[in-house]
Nucleic acid binder design. Structure first.
Lengths: 160, 160
DNA sequence: TCTTTTTATGTAGTTGACTACGCAAATGTA
DNA sequence: TACATTTGCGTAGTCAACTACATAAAAAGA
């Protein structure tokens, strides 16, 4: 690894880009991991699996709110999971606009295997972050930037 | 903001997703910021501007290494900057494979204005992260995950 | 010198997120 | 009850990164 990282030299100006680089890199590694293990699931599906397992069936919008994603993203992810046979979908009897998603029998069958992988992944991250208060930092980031975003903060500074 | 974030409940398992959510959100805000300010540049161009200003003309691959991006990404970004008139490109006289990029006169003219915006953005981030040792944490993350990646760490744990 | 390997660039195709918009059902209001 | 507004879902289009592959020039080696 060359010690030649210009973005790092940029201080706080490079912060968002470094955040993106790392999360992109980890996402790509996750994809390769599943393919190496010959497991036919994708990164991020785990959130849906975990959510529905822990809270039971939810509608598209409920899922989007629970995981703080835009609903079209949820539709995209869950459609692929349905195609792969991991989810079932049915109309809400009380509100025909809603579509309620739940884990399929296939999910229940496969989850123990997948959870081994997720646990290993979690342990790997945990060990890498040992001693750093990374979870606190990211919570603080969320508090700051989900409330008053990057744009608002910049405009505030520009006015001075 | 609802206090209903399932990803947060997932502990270290949700870490990479939270990283991605935040960096995505900041990127989108950056894009909106430029459009609000009626400035015809895009997020991430600033790295190229800053790099070429500080280190002078560089080839595509040199840029990619300096900012740790894949070279096709650099080509994509710099092509757009060229179309917008901010970069000039010429063949290296000693090595005709190389294409050397440099700031145009338009860049030099506009940079003072843009730097005001970037300084404000940097200040905003700095204030938001005040008291948190965020830069140290992200350096640690880079050291850990650029060297032995997420995949390797997970496989290591799986074997136990 | 001729051939093979490496390097630099470019193109194509994939991915995962987003916003904007449209439609239909439910809810609120006059 | 009729109309207007809100809500839930879906589609279309955009964007930024990536990998894999192709091509041409330079460098290395037989």
């Amino acid at each position: 690894m060359e010690n030649n990282d210009f973005v790092k030299e940029l201080g706080y100006l490079g912060f968002t880009m470094r955040l993106k680089r790392i999360s992109d890199a980890m996402m790509h590694e996750g994809r390769r991991l599943y393919s190496d293990l010959d497991v036919d699931i994708e990164p991020n599906w785990y959130v849906i699996f975990k959510l529905l397992k822990s809270r039971g069936a939810q509608s598209v919008t409920e899922i989007a709110e629970s995981i703080r994603m835009a609903h079209p993203s949820v539709i995209h992810i869950t459609n692929k999971m349905m195609d792969a046979g991991y989810l079932i979908s049915e109309k809400d009897p009380n509100d025909s606009r809603k579509r309620v998603l739940d884990l399929s029998a296939r999910s229940v069958k496969m989850l123990p295997e997948y959870e081994k992988i997720w646990n290993a992944g979690e342990k790997g991250v945990e060990l890498a972050l040992e001693g750093l208060n990374a979870l606190e930092i990211i919570s603080a980031l969320e508090d700051k930037f989900f409330n008053k975003g990057f744009k608002a903060r910049t405009l505030e500074q520009l006015k001075k």
